[in-house]
Design a protein around this nucleic acid. Structure first.
Lengths: 207, 207
DNA sequence: TAATATACATACAAGCATGTATGTAAGCAA
DNA sequence: TTGCTTACATACATGCTTGTATGTATATTA
């Protein structure tokens, strides 16, 4: 049965990534074995080693599947790509809410977030992932700041605080929310009111 | 040289915990071996197994050393224990700032935070630690809420938002800040301005 | 259609990590 | 001082994991 065309191989590769996601989620990245992943994908370690160098390689592939598209989406929702007339504060609010919606609906994305937040040890090779995350944060903060800048220009802000300070506060709030959202697995503490929390956060800024 | 009195044994136990902290930090909890820990503590695995059941047991012991005292401190700083006349918003601000100071000065606490945030996979036996963390969050939110309640009573708040909503927002902000503080190892992005971020966050609430 | 590359499966060797079992010297209580 | 317990060290058996080497059937290309 070892007869695979290129498309079949691509499918196998994706199956391995999906399997890795399930295994990482269940056992944590460190305690996940290539044998576990192979079994979950109904292949042998031979197939895994054909497509990937090692576990780290699979991890990065899994991560890129979701995080690369995510960056661009954020631009659009913050109204940075097209001229727009909408309330910038509402745009920030919608952007944050949309990300939460994504987590609700996109199982793949939710699981990868969970893996990266509480099923992964950022040590050795994985340490550089933290740097990437920090960089993504910086660019996200800048984007939020631009939106707050527009809000300030339109005289929509309740306080005298700088757009930069507001953007940092919003970013930290949202980072905290994401962490709690993930950790609150049964949804009783944070998930059920995530949208309200975001609204409150933004309302605090509205004039 | 195997002659240890009870006090010596207690010292050995603490040395093992301290060694575990160093090893966890360097290699991550999962990839840390009892042999690594024993070597770091200048004992053998025999000593480790005498004092602890397994790695998980060491982890919990390490965690309790820092987190149990932490809870009580928070009460005091939020002014919940004694009658006081100070501005509640300032008390919240000071409480958060004090925690950051602790992270700056208390290496042990900082390292344990780092281990728990980015060097540990919350899976299997460790999953229940997440529940404990969530519970600690709930009680912390309640304490902050009481402080905001006092602020509202004293007509110090800039917005009409409920003390509960404000407390949640503050809690999420601070959770995000702690995460970023830890991840920002070189301090260039968040650590250097942590106090300012807290001040900004509270100023947003001051009338 | 012959040669080569692809896409795996299987087999093997080596190193760890764990838990436990056993050894042992010193402390401690009667 | 005798006997038991403490506080470890040492040794052993077992079970993973990993990486690589090898086998093999099919696809692809010249």
């Amino acid at each position: 049965m070892v007869s695979k065309t290129k498309e079949d191989a691509e499918l196998t590769r994706n199956r391995i990534i999906a399997a890795a996601r399930a295994v990482f989620l269940a056992r944590g990245v460190s305690k996940s074995t290539l044998e576990h992943i192979a079994a979950e994908a109904n292949v042998t370690r031979g197939a895994v080693y054909w497509h990937f160098e090692n576990k780290t390689d699979i991890f990065h592939a899994m991560r890129e599947q979701v995080f690369l598209p995510l960056i661009d989406q954020m631009d659009d929702r913050l109204g940075l790509t097209i001229d727009n007339t909408e309330n910038p504060l509402t745009q920030i609010e919608n952007s944050l809410c949309h990300t939460i919606s994504e987590l609700n609906e996109n199982i793949e994305m939710r699981e990868i977030y969970e893996i990266m937040m509480i099923k992964c040890e950022y040590v050795g090779e994985f340490a550089m992932v933290l740097d990437q995350i920090l960089n993504n944060c910086s660019s996200l903060i800048e984007k939020i700041e631009i939106a707050y800048q527009r809000a300030q220009t339109q005289n929509l802000l309740a306080s005298m605080l700088s757009p930069h300070a507001l953007a940092l506060d919003t970013h930290l709030f949202f980072g905290g929310l994401l962490h709690m959202w993930i950790k609150d697995a049964d949804g009783s503490k944070f998930r059920h009111q995530a949208f309200d929390l975001i609204k409150t956060h933004i309302n605090l800024r509205r004039k």
